[in-house]
């Protein structure tokens, strides 16, 4: 009844063609959410299987990656919600504290040349700033900038109104800038 016409093999082939190319995107997001490889593997597998089961509901021509990430987030939210998972920097105040902590760490890295070198790499700097963002801002930025979803797709994935996404992206970037400045200031003090 729900199946589009075609054999099971056709369905599998279509899934391999349309959905499987997004496996890495799903895995990366799972890794970021689950924060350990074992859970990320399970979360990824669950997402793919569920996407396969509901593949008939995917409207072809729309963004398959966004659709799969929506499933991933739904699984994650449902499975994780009642767990006592610590969220890094949930509020702007906590964000400030987090950034201060990173800045201090950068100060201390003066005595550790290796850490200093690491902190100077651009990727590490961005990562520190991103990780200090409240989760909702970080997720919105990553979905827009890394996964290249449009705002409407991000709204769907994160289950939030479009207006909320717009402001999260805008505020998220402002917070990123602030974080990067603070990190640079701290590093400036170390004389590099």
């Amino acid at each position: 009844m729900t199946r589009k016409s075609g054999t099971a093999t056709d369905r599998r082939l279509a899934f391999e063609r349309e959905a499987m190319p997004h496996l890495d995107a799903v895995y990366s997001t799972a890794l970021r959410l689950a924060r350990n490889p074992d859970d990320a593997n399970d979360l990824t597998q669950e997402t793919i299987l569920r996407a396969y089961r509901y593949f008939d509901q995917f409207a072809s021509g729309t963004n398959c990656r966004a659709w799969m990430l929506t499933i991933l987030y739904n699984i994650f939210r449902n499975a994780w919600r009642r767990g006592e998972r610590e969220q890094p920097a949930a509020t702007p105040e906590e964000f400030d504290a987090e950034i201060e902590a990173h800045s201090r760490a950068a100060d201390q890295s003066r005595i550790n040349p290796e850490a200093l070198l690491l902190n100077r790499t651009a990727g590490r700097r961005i990562e520190l700033a991103l990780n200090a963002l409240p989760a909702e801002f970080r997720e919105a930025l990553i979905l827009v900038d890394v996964q290249e979803l449009n705002y409407q797709e991000v709204a769907t994935v994160l289950n939030a109104p479009l207006g909320t996404i717009k402001s999260r992206v805008s505020r998220g970037r402002a917070l990123m800038r602030k974080a990067l400045c603070r990190l640079d200031q701290a590093r400036g003090k170390t004389g590099t």
Binding site: S28, A122, I126, E127, L130, I142, D145, Q147
Partner: peptide, 8 residues
Amino acid sequence: VRQGAAIV
């Protein structure tokens, strides 16, 4: 951001 949080 795209570079710093690359797809794995």
